[in-house]
Each structure stands twice: as structure tokens, then as C-alpha cells.
Write a protein that binds this DNA or RNA. Structure first.
Lengths: 362, 362
DNA sequence: TACGATCGGGAAATCGGATTCCTTGTTTCC
DNA sequence: GGAAACAAGGAATCCGATTTCCCGATCGTA
């Protein structure tokens, strides 16, 4: 497979076509003024030799690399990966190649990668992060767009998911279904995703004359936390204690302290800050004999399908459209490269995905 | 942030240091013969100007790009992604950059990407796939290493997970725990991963004078299939029917047809072909009132932590070490670039991960 | 018919480093 | 003291394509 040394240069094509190298260049790039017959002859010679112009040489003379760097702080890539893929995909359309650089949370690695990208004279850089926390900008002599994690410098261009809009969609949906007693289960308390979602939820409820049916809960982003949160949440409402629906004690819970959501003031919906937490919550609700969504509606966030679809029932959730986010970042970057830079934070509208966890089988 | 036009050339450094450009090159690359004082002076000038040599120009004259292509057939990237990350990481160590190219199962896109990589004169290419099915090799004038999905041409270099070894580890583990009545639940029947794991399981059992406790089952790779498979598997053994452990009918199953694994000939372990399927299986076993691992031990495959750790109980499984696989592919590619190409398929030994689904809380 | 305009295509410069080859100036050794 | 060896650094060439400039041939028009 490796026909090493088979690299065809422009002079080879020129020789075969019986013209000069400059003529070949003009013929293949549709520039200059050449007879159509000459162009055709050159094209045929190029085809015959399988000539692929050396992008390195082209870059040198064009003074740009037609390459952009994708700098990902993340390693595992739960969130940054779709962004990277979306960006890569959009770049291809612009005839740009993508240099992948993963820093894995290590500032030293990041610095190293930045230098490498600068050395390669990339036309621009897209920086993505693991969370939506704002991050320090990088200092480089080419355009940069921050995706998912915005830059702390408001003069930089950033694209982030519109979490507030996502939560508004959820509240609107739940309110439309007549749910009034809504509880919130966040992820890690110090992360923007937990906080923004909570604050928006509270504001949206207030706009409808409602308030949270229970104090907000924070933990981590695991299914286990989702299960525990349900225990805490329902345990908290001692006034709701009733006999469980179908036989068998709730596995991990004190058997003498059984619950339900029947009666006035019962929680009729739980908004979880992520699909993973929501899935754990659904599992626990089911184990406690509560029906989702009949007794309690449940919503997730992220539309991570391996969670949202596998959950029983499948989750109503919010798709942040991370691929689109990456694509949008690429668009902004290409515009900046073309001399039309954007500034500030652009928020990408998310998409509500309705599934059985709020709608039942209907 | 974008100090455009601030690009420093070697002539700028030369001027500041009061030497010629060639001297700067020699000084910074530790070649030629120069007075140490001169080198120091040049280095200082370079530092002061923040000179980063243009990799494009360097590539042109070195006749190599110090770049390798990472061609991923996959889009979602459940498997190819860790491979890509592992490779990228190893390449950095070799001062190589990684060009990301995702084909998304589309031959046209793949062809397009291959041409782009050739145009960029990458030093080599690592090709990864979504599954372990052998794939057609690509035809390019530089070294190629196939990772995860091997090339159909045995002369090419490929690195794949050693599925047979993984299954041997599982059987050894289960047999060591005294399990004798082992069942197998595969994923999609036509995929190599399902088949190899089954065949190895059967062979290993035979080597111990055992055979499968039930006909092998095939479905897809979902949790739902794992749940169904458990139903089928236990339903299949009509001779095992006994009253369920704890009250409440098994949710989706015909209530008149209840089961257990008690008695001689009962299934005492289920080997699932993936963590996802195994997790579904665990859920169903628990719902049926069976204890894992007391009544039935369960094993998964992949060590996809979002599944294997979130499962109740957490899964004993096999880690294919995909990052290491990518790293190994990078090593082989670098060797090939340095003129020492490998041939044939190299199998990477996996790692057994023992968790509570076989060992209980011990 | 003659002169300028246009067309077609080649020669050469350019991009930014690396490298080879030379030219100096200094040592070394007989 | 003179030839050879060597150290230090500059000049020129090269990598492969693009692009500018320029020249010869053809064409149109007065």
C-alpha cells in the first residue's frame, strides 16, 4: 500500500503536458489566461499521474495554512467531543483541516499545544472546555473562538449553550402539563450548569406565581446521586407518607418510613440537572412504587442518549445541540479568518426533547 | 488577543542578533559549528522576539510534515474515540501533530479526507473503525497503521484488542469462583465481537469439560436487549421455575410463569458481550428477585464506566485498553515512518476488572 | 500596412526556513 | 615560516507551489 517515492510534483505534470510549471498551476487553479485546450491537456496529465499539489508548499506561498487548531481542555470528552466533531465537520466544508490538540486539564500541555499550533501557523483556533465555566483566554497571533466554555475576556468570541433558554423550555412544558409542585435536583453545587438551571427554574416558576416545592438539592452528576436525591426529596416531605403502591419495601430506605406523592402539596415533577442524575432518579422512583410520569414527571438535561433513551421511562430532556455549537464556532472562526471577527458571547438555543418521562405513553 | 502581523521571521532574529539567518538556524537547532557566545546571543534575541519557527517552511525543506492523520470511520466515537485520544497523546511525545479526519461511515467523505491527508503530505496515517470488523485498506503513499478495525490485507500493520484473551480472563475468573452453569448473551449476531467472544467462551468451557448452560442469545447492544435476554434465558429453563424471592410480580413478564435459578442445573453465571447489555441484564435479574452475584454472577465487556460503574451491582468486565491501543498504533506508525514498518495483526492484551457483579461486596 | 491591444504562456521571484558549500581568520605542526 | 587543518559564520541553493512580470504572437482597427 505504501508506494513511497511515488510523489508527483508539479514539474512532472508540466513535463508530461509539455508546458511550464507555472502553466500547470494556472491550468489547475483556473487562474491566468490559458487556452481551454491547454487547460484540458494539463488536467489530463495531472489526472494520469495522480497529481495532488503539496499543501505545505501552497501554504508557504499563500501565507496561510488552511488549517485550524481544535484545542480541547477535556480528555474524556463527554461534552467537548461533540463540539469538536461538529467543528471538524464544518471546517471540511471550508476546505480547512483540523489539528487536534487535547490538553487534558494540564496547563503545561495546553501551553505546549498552543505553541505547536502557532508554529504550524494555523489560521485560527477553536478552544473547547469540559464545563461551561468561563476560562482564561489564550494569547496567540490568530483568531480564536471559544466554544462551550466562554472566554473571561468579553472582547473574545464565544459560543455557549443557552442554559436559561433550555430551562425555560422545560418549565413551559411542565407547566403546560399542569404540573405545579416542582422540585429541583442539581449536580455539583459550584458549577455554573447547576446554578444557572436552578436560578432560571426559580425565576420561571415565580413568573407563574409558583415556587419550588422543596429546597434545591445538590450532589454530583451521578446516577447514584439521582437515586439518593429522590430519597432525600421524598423523605423531606413527611406529610406525604402513604402506603407504597405495589408490594415490597423500597430497597435502601427505612421500611418504617414509606412515601408517595398523593395528596395536596405533593411533588408532581422533578427537574434534574442532567440525564444521568435523572435516570438514577427514575430508577428510584420506580423502586419506590411511584409511577413516572403519572405520579411524578421527570426531566433530564443534555439528551445524552445512552442515558435518556435507556432510562425507564425515556427522558424528556434538553438537547444542547453541541454539534451545532461546534459548527457555529467554526463558522464564526472562518468569518474571523476572513477578516470579520465576532465579539462577545453568543448563546445557542437548545431543543426540547419530549419523551415518556413527562408524557406517558401518549 | 490577536496580535496579527506580529509574526517574527528568522531574519528578524538575525538582524537583532547581528548575524545571518543561517547562523540563527544553526544556533537554534544546535547544528553547525558556532561559538557558544553566538548561540547564546541568538537564543536571547529569539526569546526576546518570541520567535517560533514556521513549521510550514520547515516541513517544506525537510520533506516531511511532522504530522500524522487520524482517520476515523466512526462518528459518535464510542470506541474509536479513546483510540484517537491515545494516539494523539502518544504522537505529541514524538513531536508530531495530529490531523483529525472523521469520515462518518461515508466512503465519499473518507476518500475526500484521504486525499486531503495526502495533499498535506502527512508522514503517516492511523485508521480506526467503529467495530472490529476487518476493513478495506486505504491506498496512500505513506505508512498506515490500522487500529481497532484491522486491514483485510495481512501485509498491513494492524492493532486490535485481543477479544479471545479477554474472554479467557473472564472464564478463568468465573471458573475460579466455582461457577459451572454459564450462559452467554451476545450483541448483534453478525458482528465479530459477538462471535469471537462466544466461540472463545465455548472453547474455554470445553477445555474444562463444560458447555454452555443454554443456547447463546443474540440481539443488539442495548440495555433493553439485556433485559429481554434475561427473560428469554430464564424462561427457557422451564425446569427452574420457583416462587420469586421478594413480593411483586416481575414487571414485564407473564405473572403465571415465575422463575429462579435454584436447583441443580440452574444458570449460575451470565456472560454478556457488553457492559450495556449486562447492565440491562442486572436490572432485570434484580427485578426478578434474583441476587447478583449470589444467585447469578454477571460479567460485561468494555469497561465503559458510565455503564459498568453505574450498574447495580457494578460490573466485573474486561477493559480493552483502547487508549493504550491508540498509543501502540502511534508507536508502530512512528517506527514505520522511521523506516521500520510492522506487518500483520498485533493483539493487545486486555485487562480483567473485577467488581461486585461476580464478587459480591467482599 | 502599421501600430497598439490582447492573448497565451514562460522565466523568475517569492514564501521561510534548513543545509551545503565557501570564505575568511586562526591554530597547529613540521 | 609556511602549509595544512580547523573553527566560525556568511552566501547560495533548495524544498514545491503560486504569482508577478515580461515577451512573442495574434488580432483589430485606422
Amino acid at each position: 500500500m505504501t508506494d513511497r517515492g511515488a510523489v508527483v510534483r508539479i514539474t512532472d505534470v508540466a513535463a508530461l503536458a509539455g508546458v511550464s510549471p507555472s502553466t500547470v498551476s494556472k491550468a489547475l487553479n483556473d487562474t491566468g489566461s490559458l487556452r481551454e485546450s491547454t487547460r484540458a491537456r494539463v488536467r489530463e496529465a495531472a489526472d494520469r499521474l495522480g497529481f495532488v499539489p503539496d499543501a505545505t508548499a501552497r501554504s508557504l506561498s499563500a501565507r496561510r495554512s488552511f488549517t485550524v487548531g481544535l484545542l480541547s481542555t477535556d480528555s474524556a470528552g463527554r461534552f467537548s467531543l461533540p463540539v469538536v466533531l461538529g467543528a471538524e465537520n464544518a471546517l471540511v466544508g471550508g476546505a480547512l483541516s483540523a489539528l487536534l490538540a487535547t490538553a487534558r486539564h494540564d496547563p503545561v500541555r495546553e501551553q505546549h499545544h498552543v505553541r505547536a499550533l502557532v508554529a504550524r501557523r494555523v489560521d485560527g483556533i477553536i478552544v473547547t472546555g469540559r464545563t461551561t465555566e468561563p476560562r482564561e483566554p489564550i494569547r496567540v497571533p490568530m483568531p480564536v473562538v471559544y466554544a462551550f466554555a466562554p472566554s473571561t475576556d468579553s472582547d473574545d468570541a464565544s459560543v455557549v449553550p443557552d442554559d436559561a433558554a433550555g430551562m425555560r423550555l422545560l418549565v413551559e412544558h411542565l407547566a403546560g402539563l399542569g404540573r405545579r409542585r416542582i422540585a429541583y435536583v442539581g449536580g455539583r453545587a459550584e458549577q455554573a450548569a447547576s446554578v444557572v438551571r436552578h436560578d432560571t427554574l426559580v425565576a420561571e416558576l415565580a413568573a407563574r406565581g409558583l415556587e419550588l416545592a422543596a429546597p434545591p438539592l445538590y450532589g454530583d452528576w451521578s446516577e447514584q446521586w439521582g437515586r439518593r436525591a429522590v430519597d432525600v426529596l421524598l423523605g423531606h416531605r413527611r406529610d406525604l407518607v402513604v402506603a407504597p403502591r405495589s408490594g415490597g419495601a423500597p430497597p435502601d430506605l427505612d421500611p418504617g418510613h414509606q412515601i408517595s406523592t398523593a395528596g395536596p402539596g405533593a411533588v408532581d415533577a422533578i427537574v434534574f440537572a442532567s440525564d444521568q442524575v435523572a435516570r438514577g432518579g427514575c430508577d428510584r422512583l420506580r423502586e419506590l412504587g411511584l409511577r413516572v410520569p403519572d405520579d411524578v414527571a421527570v426531566t433530564g438535561y443534555d439528551d445524552w442518549e445512552v442515558m435518556s433513551l435507556a432510562s425507564r421511562p425515556p427522558l424528556t430532556t434538553v438537547d444542547m445541540r453541541l454539534e451545532r455549537l461546534g459548527q457555529r464556532a467554526a463558522e464564526l472562526l472562518i468569518a474571523a479568518i476572513d477578516g470579520d471577527p465576532a465579539h462577545g458571547v453568543e448563546r445557542l438555543a437548545p431543543r426540547l426533547v419530549v419523551r415518556a418521562s413527562t408524557l406517558g405513553d401518549g
